[in-house]
Nucleic acid binder design. Structure first.
Lengths: 163, 163
DNA sequence: TATTGTTATACTCTATAACTATA
DNA sequence: TATAGTTATAGAGTATAACAATA
């Protein structure tokens, strides 16, 4: 007679550890899922294109919002001003984005992606979308789409007392 | 006549930036949502109980899996061995967990939470669950539960070619 | 030969403080 | 007085390499 094991539905994906109460903590599940999405990003976009997650996000937000300032970018990503300065420095040194003086506010700098930056962002996004779809066969297309929307709703809770 | 603004459904929660293509990148939405869950954790569990996110997770996994090894914990959290050693050092110095020699493997150390560690983990989990529920009024209870399950499915994709 | 755990070390990333310039 | 951006500096966190002990 084989050893009986109690049925388990709550386990960590890799470490085979119980997570009975932890299972319902959203922050914990976010961290565990981020392990997967980070690995997908690094393998299919980060390493091929030489981009860190933050660099990719910053670059793409600039591509999709030409003419934005560094301060607005810092708020969007919840990072500090010196931090954004550093990442823009790196992207500018690689010729992916450009700083230009704002026409309306002489304190501010306006950001714009170069043609190379736009091309890189487009290729990276394409690669990530395909890689995520391929990696997450555990989710149906409908579930995948629903997850994205639910996460967006969570993100929109920002400012409502969460941070 | 007021200035006309084009209707926008895809914007960053805080920075008011378009994210048309970025919107469908799961890793990006994960990062944005993590800003919220991290803030909730820090405000209601991290600062009150003096716990970093990793510390909370490590402690709770030990509470729910007494007798596990450091190596297994490292795999569960996808962190390196020296990293786990450091976090266990900190938790042990605070009297929250204990290391004990394994009875079956003389290389391994077995981890166990102290009564104080168990109490702290229980209180912290309670606080997080309540705080997340309170902060995410933008999600219905059903959506909240579904989000947790979808994230769990994503996390379970680990090892299937994602990392 | 692989695995467990530790130490030492370096690197990445982030945060804080102080500053200039402009609103 | 507040905001935009930069610089300098310190701190947190992580990774790598090398090692000892055991499987």
């Amino acid at each position: 007679m084989p050893t009986r094991r109690p049925p388990r539905t709550d386990v960590t994906p890799a470490g085979r550890l119980d997570e009975a109460r932890l299972h319902h903590v959203l922050g914990y599940q976010m961290a565990q899922a981020t392990i997967v999405t980070n690995a997908v990003f690094m393998a299919h976009a980060g390493e091929p294109f030489g981009l860190r997650p933050v660099e990719y996000t910053v670059l793409t937000l600039i591509v999709e919002n030409p003419g934005g300032s560094l301060a607005r970018l810092a708020r969007a990503l919840a990072v500090t001003a010196p931090n954004i300065t550093m990442w823009i420095d790196k992207l500018e040194a690689r010729g992916l984005v450009r700083r230009q003086p704002s026409a309306t506010d002489r304190r501010a700098q306006v950001l714009q992606a170069t043609p190379q930056g736009e091309a890189l962002a487009r290729q990276a996004t394409q690669a990530i979308l395909e890689a995520e779809r391929a990696a997450l066969t555990t989710l149906s297309p409908a579930e995948h789409a629903m997850l994205v929307e639910l996460l967006h709703k969570v993100a929109c809770a920002r400012g409502d007392g969460a941070g």
